[in-house]
Structure formats: structure tokens, C-alpha cells
């Protein structure tokens, strides 16, 4: 592209949220923390190839009260089975869900009610497992998690009426 060194940093929002939380620019309201048991799915691209595992765990531990690890986790996680373009193959959805029974077992073993999936592609994969095996869990993104738990200053709230 003409540049040997990229003139800017490229990052996943999870890594950026981590920076915001650590530097104190974004604060979490302790009263709003998620009470239900949650677990975290590690997306291949940002965990196995970019090594953001600990940053993601920091965000989850800040915003949730009951965090349970899947096993195996971090860079040894199993894929969501929607990677490599499979997320768009509608004809193959049941084939895809059958091919990822281990992920369903992994999620059920944690006993969590919410699976935090910080990747659109992985959400497609996890949702097709949830629908196929009828798992009693729901998926959540980091943005939803933070919007629900962050501390909003008084002056930023809209006026009544």
C-alpha cells in the first residue's frame, strides 16, 4: 500500500473499550452490573491471532458479577463454526450446527445464561447452535453490555418531556 508502517493503530472495539475503562474515561455503574451468570466466547481472529484475551476478560469482570470461563478457553477456544465464510451459507446452517456440538456442550457446562460474543460472525454461529440444540441462553455484544452498565453523568441525560 505504499506505507511500511501504518500511520494509525488498527484495533477491535474490545481492545479500545479496554483502553477507555483502564484510563478511566468510561466508568461502570456498580448498581447496573449484570447479575446473571455469563460466559465469554473467544473469537479466533482477535484472540488466537491478535492476543486480546486478557483485555476481554477485564471488560467482562468489570461489568458482570458472575463470570464463568468456558473450557478450553483463550487461544485454545473452539471456533464458533461460522468462520471462513460459513456464516453466510444459509443452505448449510443445519450442517454447520451439527458440526459444532462441542461448542454447545462447552456453553452448557458453564451453566451461564448469557454468552458474550464480541464478534458479528461468531454471533451467527452461536445463534445457529442455540436454535438447533435449543439451548436456554442468549448472546450479547460488548456494546450492549457497556451501554447497559456504564455510568452516564446527570447532565448527559435528556430532559423530561
Amino acid at each position: 500500500m505504499g506505507y511500511k508502517e501504518i500511520p494509525f493503530e488498527v484495533m477491535h472495539p474490545g481492545e479500545f473499550y479496554y483502553e477507555l475503562l483502564v484510563s478511566g474515561r468510561l466508568k461502570i455503574d456498580p448498581a447496573k452490573k449484570i447479575k446473571e451468570p455469563v460466559t465469554l466466547h473467544d473469537p479466533c481472529n482477535v484472540i488466537r491471532r491478535a492476543g486480546a484475551a486478557e483485555k476481554f476478560r477485564y471488560i467482562v469482570e468489570q461489568t458482570c458479577e458472575d463470570f464463568r470461563e468456558m473450557y478450553p478457553n483463550r487461544e485454545h477456544n473452539f471456533c464458533c463454526n461460522a468462520g471462513g465464510g460459513l456464516s453466510s451459507l444459509v443452505q448449510w446452517y443445519s450442517h454447520e450446527a451439527r458440526g459444532n456440538r462441542v461448542k454447545a456442550e462447552q456453553i452448557m457446562a458453564t451453566g451461564a445464561k448469557i454468552v458474550i460474543v464480541p464478534c458479528h460472525n461468531c454471533t451467527t454461529g452461536i445463534k445457529s447452535i442455540i436454535n438447533y440444540y435449543k439451548l436456554p441462553v442468549k448472546t450479547m455484544f460488548f456494546d450492549e453490555l457497556l451501554v447497559n452498565t456504564m455510568y452516564i453523568p446527570e447532565e448527559m441525560l435528556p430532559e423530561e418531556g
Binding site: C44, R48, R49, E75, N81, G83, G84, L89
Partner: peptide, 13 residues
């Protein structure tokens, strides 16, 4: 290659 591999790199690990 298109429907039975996710290119997730776990095997290389």
C-alpha cells in the same frame, strides 16, 4: 474446503 473448514487455525496450534 468451503463447508467443513472454518480456517480457525486451531489445528496449527
Amino acid at each position: 474446503v468451503f463447508t467443513e473448514c472454518n480456517i480457525c487455525h486451531r489445528c496449527s496450534l
